[in-house]
Amino acid sequence: MKAGLSYRKREQIAGGFKFVILLVFGLLLITPFVWMVSVGFDRTANVTMPFPPKLVPKHPSSFNFGIVFENGSLIKAYLNSAIVTVSSVLIGVSASLLAGYAFSKGRFKGKKVLFVVVLCTLMIPMEPRLIPLYKLFNSVHLLNTFWPLVLPSLISGMLIFLCKQFFDQLPDTLREASQIDGAGEFTTFFRIYLPLAGPIVATMIILAFIWSWNDFMWPLVVLNDKELQTVPLYLASFSLENGTRLGGLTMALATMSVLPIVILYLFLQKYIIQSIALSGVKGE
C-alpha cells in the first residue's frame, strides 16, 4: 500500500518534470516567431535592431505593417500563390483520384507495369528535370506565366499511391452491386466510390497544398516577372535585396507571410498532422 502510493507520487513528479521540459523546449522552439512579431512592431528596428532583445518593443507601432500593406507586393504575391496553389491542387488531386481508383479497382492489361511506372516517378527529383522543362515551356512561350507551375502538378506518384491504398480498403462488392444495377465504370466511380473518399481527398488536398504553396526552385526558374511572384519568391527577393538591413520591415513582412499559414494550421492541425504522418509512414 505504502509502496503503491510512493510509486504514484513518483510518477506524478516525473510527469510534472516532463511537462516542464516539454514546455521550456517548446517555447524555445517558437522564440524566433515571438521575436519576429516583436521586432515587426518596432519602428526603430529599421535603423538599429532593439538590443538587448525585448519581448515588447519600447515604442510599439504598426508602422512596418502599414508599409507592408501599402506597398501591395505581398498581397499581389498572395493572390498569385493562391491562383497557382488552387489550380495545382485541383488538377493534381483530380488526376490522382482517377488513376488511384483505376489502379485499385480496375482490371486491365499492364496494370502492374503501369503502377510500377507511377512508383518510379517517386524517385525522380526536380533538379534533373529543371533545364528540359525550362526549355519545353520556353519553346511554347509559356515562361513568365502560371502554366509551368500548374501543369506539372498533373502527376504526383505520392497522391496516386495514397489514393490507391485508400480504395483498396473499400470492398469490391460495391462495384458489383452498382453494375448489376447497370451503372458504367464512370458512374460507379462518381456515384459510389468518390462520396466515400472524403478522408483521403482531404489528405491529398492538404499535401498538394503544402507542396505547391512552398514550391521554390522551379518558380524561381520560370518566373522573372515581379508581378507574378509567388509568396516564397517575393520573400526571397526582398531578403536578398535588403540583407539584414530594415529589420523591422523584414520581420513585419515575415510575420504577414507566416500568419495565414499558422492560422490555417491551428484550425486544421489534426488533419495536417495526420496527413504528414500518413505520407511519411507510407513512403516518399
Binding site: W213, L235, A236, F238, T250, M251, A254, S257
Partner: peptide, 15 residues
C-alpha cells in the same frame, strides 16, 4: 513542436 515545419523554409531562413 510541429509549428516550425509548417512555415515555409524561405520565411524561416529570412527570420
Amino acid at each position: 513542436y510541429f509549428l516550425p515545419n509548417v512555415t515555409s523554409i524561405v520565411a524561416a531562413a529570412m527570420i
